[in-house]
């Protein structure tokens, strides 16, 4: 992932948001999707992505489906019911964080109008 602690703290939120939007995804697909959305600005490395996916899986927030694709087995991740609820919470937390940061960085701008 891009060398910034700001991004690192949001990795699970990014993963869960992508899964919420795309239904199910596999590891490599997630890295490419993030690269594509951010026009190459943000890169999620394997070293950060897979442990995060496994942690979310062990916490019961993600479910997996395995399919044979192109001569190999592929592990798809999707949100569980509790994962969907957690995504809503995490997004709300992130939005609040952004609002607060905007209030601090640009105190003259009304934060509610920025989101």
């Amino acid at each position: 992932m891009k060398n910034s602690s700001l991004y690192k703290g949001s990795l699970t939120t990014i993963i869960m948001k992508l899964l919420e939007e795309n239904g199910r995804m596999y590891g490599y697909e997630i890295t490419q999707k993030v690269k594509q959305i951010t026009a190459g600005e943000l890169t999620i490395t394997e070293g950060a992505l897979y442990p995060a996916l496994h942690k979310l899986e062990s916490e019961g927030l993600l479910d997996v489906e395995v399919e044979r694709v192109d001569n190999r087995l592929r592990k798809y991740y999707k949100l569980t019911e509790s994962g969907e609820k957690e995504t809503v919470n995490k997004m709300a937390e992130l939005e609040e964080f952004i609002r607060n940061m905007q209030s601090i960085l640009s105190p003259d701008v009304k934060p509610g109008l920025q989101l």
């Binding site: 596999y26 590891g27 490599y28 490419q32 897979y50 192109d70 190999r72 087995l73 592990k75």
Partner: peptide, 17 residues
């Protein structure tokens, strides 16, 4: 085995691309 197969898929996807 499951981690190995997932990493195999990751490398294969990268090489295919």
């Amino acid at each position: 085995k499951d981690i190995r197969l997932e990493m195999t898929d990751h490398i294969a996807s990268y090489l295919e691309e």
